[in-house]
Design a protein around this nucleic acid. Sequence first.
DNA 1: CCACTACCTGTAGCGTTTCTACGCATAGCC
DNA 2: GGCTATGCGTAGAAACGCTACAGGTAGTGG
Lengths: 107, 107
Amino acid sequence: MSTERLKGHLDALLLAVLEPGPLHGYGVVEKLRSRSAGAFDLPSGTIYPALHRLERTGLITGDWSVHNGRRRRTYTITAAGRTYLASERTEWRGFAGVVDRVLEFPA
Amino acid sequence: MSTERLKGHLDALLLAVLEPGPLHGYGVVEKLRSRSAGAFDLPSGTIYPALHRLERTGLITGDWSVHNGRRRRTYTITAAGRTYLASERTEWRGFAGVVDRVLEFPA
DNA sequence: CCACTACCTGTAGCGTTTCTACGCATAGCC
DNA sequence: GGCTATGCGTAGAAACGCTACAGGTAGTGG
């Protein structure tokens, strides 16, 4: 599946992946891949700027740590992030419903 | 609903609107608005370039005519357009299903 | 007659977002 | 020594919908 379609929906997906608990960037990529059954296999050039954007806007926070000799930046969803995620879920349901209606039922 | 989310899905929606029969640009806007219950109210600056793109790639054809003294360009979906629309429908179902899975079921 | 609205098409330039293609580094295995 | 997995990151390009603008006809209300 072309990931170009993600446009505008990626932030919500990242927040959803971070919702159950903190993860570092590399882990986010893996979890997104596994949760989507391989469909969303995002390159690091997409994921890291996106995480930086979310951090800049206060939807997640990041902290450096060292794990097995490798430095990691672990991201945690904030209260604002959870609120935003909730609204994005509602938006998504609405959007998907309308697309379904327009796309699936020619009249 | 922010129409920014349309990114990557607009072509399919336009083809779906043209599927039952030919329409001119202005009519496409109206039909898309009515079929989406007002959610997709696209500005002409979005719709006309998109129609030109679809025509350029051979998914629709356009013909000039005059109606009540006003010139119109009427668009008709081509066989290639129908084929493309079918594949887009499949793609959309897959995409929406994956987003649902990632977004709605935190694990 | 004039203003306003609906109808109808179109272009120019902007901003956002994801992508590709790199670069850099450590750990572990063969 | 070379390869893979882990791990973070930037630069530049490409795509696409948006805003703002431009231009025109037909009909209606004052």
